[in-house]
Design a protein around this nucleic acid. Structure first.
Lengths: 339, 339
DNA sequence: ATCTCCGATCTAATCGATTAGATACCTTAG
DNA sequence: CTAAGGTATCTAATCGATTAGATCGGAGAT
């Protein structure tokens, strides 16, 4: 290490400016012969431009800051990985931060990212702290919200069709003949999961299911939460025959609770999850779930940043990507096809 | 944004040097009164040092490069998150790259990291490409290998006790009275999983289990691989009564295969996994597994980098952290305690 | 033959923070 | 009262790449 532009220029018998022009297909033209000499010198010396120096001068660091709530959660893990891959394919690196749902940590990361002159931000968060929001709104770089967005942001937003997915899952269970479709919801009805619950409610309303049969059980978004939440449902006086778990984590916990109670899925309780994380193909029984297109969301997010960098178009715009029903065993479908 | 050192200096009626000295508890002393003025100016202007400029001049970027095989795998996901958290607590950010087990990608990331002047590298990889190894060996910054290390490296190494864990898992199954303990291995016996298989073999040898009862089934390290691999074992003429899956991913796939075949865990087949990823607490039945101390490994890795930065001590040294048996239902233990 | 103009190149300022060398002031020793 | 030494500051070079402005030579126009 340690080969600089100046070294290359010396060896190619030219100036640093010309070398820079060659590297960047610079703002000025370079004679073919000279370009050749420069390229050769670069190859011979094994020169690689210093991204730090470049970032300082050109204000383009080539780094994207990615803020995630919790990579230990498989859904956020796949989303994070997809974002990282999409960024790399676009020639950028990502710095990542796990907020662990802690607003202070979220803000600390945001500032650290900005101090590092990230070129753009991808924010995946279940909820946003007001201070973090301020920091984002006044950030000198474009941001894209993925999975969830604050009420009225000017930034680009990429969401899954959570409401539609909730409706899809619920309708599917109703189509199996169930009349008592409960929902495993989060601690409150805010955010993306809130929209899923709204979809559930809408489906029930459309089919004329009476209010008192619309049972909702709340818990934290963890497997343990889903476990406890399902256990509560099982003890409910009017035990539901079908359950829509608003995240796969909840569903996996629920599956475990049902087995523990000596009941069977889908015979005693049919279950549908939401997220489409890989592990659901291998639960016991395999889990029917709503597939969220993590890769497409990631590509859209990076594309959104690209748009903001390129043009001066309106950066904003909300994109809602379609979800899909992944039919497996837990809902009662006989022939599990997709895995 | 855009407050610079010079702005602060101007407002505090001093020079940029003094401001820098204050910020860094600089190499030179500053009078108490002046320090006070500077601190006040910093607060009033909301100044935050530019990490890029600092990195260029001081050669300390405050960023650690983390290379992982595949964050979609829960084990690597937790390891990655733990590393990120430990780094943040040490005041550093991480750039992460998922190689997807692809040597070219691994090398590309490594170079990109180095170009970005990362201050240190944490390499988690199942196998290493020769070229990547070269790049690492000649890197101008310290590296720590986690989970797996190349044969004779000079860098620090943090491993789990894979061999001991393999033995622990196997012995536990033998103690349950099983005489036919097969293993679900990886595509070959290299790397950390190879050591786990070696531990299995050692345990069997110690108990005098004859060669022909030491059945090993190979597959890729995926749930689908574990599924196929277990299916093969079930069709084996001498079907084993117990199986040690060398990773939790394999175990989860295996669990599914057993259920599909209409058999029961642990009654027909006892099963023990390896990694201790969170989801194993919620499989059906819950999975007995070998807990790998991901957080401790992460902290050790960061500590290793710290050591390399601080002193000029021998950077090398191999640390092997103990693993633990997490008893749950899949091995046949009646009372599942830890979750 | 002289004037333009353009492509190719070089010189040098710049991004923002760090830090060695120079300088100014003050105290203490001789 | 001056020399020596220490403390607090300031000036300016530096890290490596980018790019605007200056310079130069040659092709084409008149």
């Amino acid at each position: 290490m340690g080969v600089t532009l100046a070294d290359v220029a010396r060896r190619a018998q030219t100036s640093t400016a010309v070398v820079s022009y060659v590297i960047n297909n610079g703002p000025r033209p370079v004679a073919a012969a000279t370009r050749e000499r420069v390229l050769q010198a670069i190859a011979e010396l094994g020169y690689r431009p210093d991204r730090v120096a470049r970032a300082l001068r050109a204000k383009r660091s080539g780094v994207i800051g990615v803020l995630l709530p919790d990579t230990a959660n498989p859904f956020f893990a796949s989303l994070g990985q997809a974002i990282e891959a999409a960024a790399f394919d676009a020639g950028r690196l990502v710095v990542v931060g796990n907020s662990g749902f802690d607003p202070d940590r979220e803000e600390a990361y945001l500032h650290a990212f900005l101090d590092s002159r990230v070129e753009g931000l991808v924010v995946v968060s279940a909820r946003h702290s007001p201070r973090a929001l301020d920091a984002l709104a006044s950030a000198p770089v474009p941001a894209v919200y993925v999975h969830h967005a604050p009420p009225d942001t000017l930034s680009a937003v990429v969401l899954a069709d959570n409401d539609g997915g909730g409706r899809l899952a619920t309708t599917h269970l109703l189509d199996h003949g169930h009349e008592n479709v409960a929902v495993l919801a989060g601690p409150d009805d805010a955010g993306p999961v809130g929209a899923r619950v709204a979809g559930w409610r809408r489906a029930l309303a459309e089919r004329g299911v009476p209010e008192h049969r619309r049972v909702r059980s709340r818990s934290a978004f963890t497997r343990a939460g889903g476990h406890a939440s399902m256990r509560r449902l099982l003890e409910h006086k009017a035990r539901p025959t079908a359950v829509f778990a608003a995240t796969d984590e909840l569903a996996v916990g629920a599956l475990h609770a049902v087995a523990e109670a000596g009941l069977r899925v889908p015979d005693d309780i049919a279950l549908v999850g939401f997220d489409g994380v890989p592990e659901t193909a291998f639960t016991n029984p395999s889990l029917t779930t709503i597939g969220v297109p993590a890769e497409r969301m990631a590509r859209s997010a990076i594309a959104g940043l690209d748009r903001a960098w390129q043009g001066h178009e309106r950066p904003g715009g909300e994109e809602i990507l379609p979800v899909s029903l992944i039919q497996r065993a837990s809902c009662g479908c006989e022939s599990p096809t997709s895995r």
